[in-house]
Computed example of a mutant assay.
Amino acid sequence: MAPVRLDLTQRLSAAFELFDRPGVRILTPTVASDELLASVHDPGYIQAVRAVSSGAEPHRQDLGLGTEDNPVFPHIHEASARILGGSVDAAEAVWTGKVRHAVNFAGGLHHAGRSRASGFCIYNDCAAAIQRLLDLGAERVAYVDLDAHHGDGVESIFWHDPRVLTISIHETGISLFPGSGFANDAGGPQALGSVVNVAVPPGTGDSGYLRAVHAVVPQLLGVFAPEVLVTQHGCDGHGEDPLTNLRLSVDGQRQLVLDAADWARDFAGDRWFATGGGGYSPFSVVPRVWTHLVAVATGRPLPSGTRIPHEWRLEAARAAGAAGPVGLAGIPETMSDGGDVWWRSWESGYDPADAVDQTIMATRKEIFPYHGLDPWFD
Rank of each mutant, 00 (worst) to 15 (best):
Q255Y: 13
W272H: 11
G305V: 03
L314A: 15
G330V: 00
E57L: 12
R21E: 15
A329G: 14
V4E: 06
R364V: 12
T30Y: 00
P375A: 06
L293W: 00
G108M: 14
A319L: 05
A186Y: 02
G137F: 03
D357S: 05
D69K: 03
T275L: 12
T359D: 09
A264M: 12
R271I: 05
R254D: 05
G119K: 00
A112M: 10
H292N: 02
F368T: 04
R364M: 09
E155I: 07
Y143Q: 10
A148R: 06
R11K: 14
I157L: 11
D266Q: 06
I76W: 07
A81F: 02
A148M: 10
V223T: 11
P43R: 15
R21D: 15
P352G: 08
E347R: 12
S80D: 05
M361H: 10
D185I: 03
A319F: 05
W263M: 05
L229E: 05
F267Y: 13
I130F: 01
L84T: 09
L210R: 12
D145I: 01
T28M: 12
G187W: 13
H371I: 08
H170K: 08
R140Y: 11
G107D: 04
F177N: 07
R288T: 11
G203V: 04
P162Q: 10
H110L: 05
D270K: 05
P352H: 07
P375W: 00
F273A: 08
A79N: 05
G372S: 05
I174Y: 01
Y45R: 02
N70S: 11
V257G: 13
G187A: 14
A212F: 00
R307T: 15
A51Y: 03
D185K: 02
N197W: 07
L18I: 11
G66T: 14
A329C: 11
P226K: 08
P74E: 11
A14D: 15
L258G: 13
A323W: 10
V286T: 07
E35T: 11
C235S: 09
F182M: 03
L210T: 12
E155T: 13
V296G: 07
A199W: 03
G338S: 02
G277Y: 01
A261P: 07
E227K: 04
D262F: 00
R132D: 11
G137S: 09
V198I: 14
R140K: 13
R307F: 14
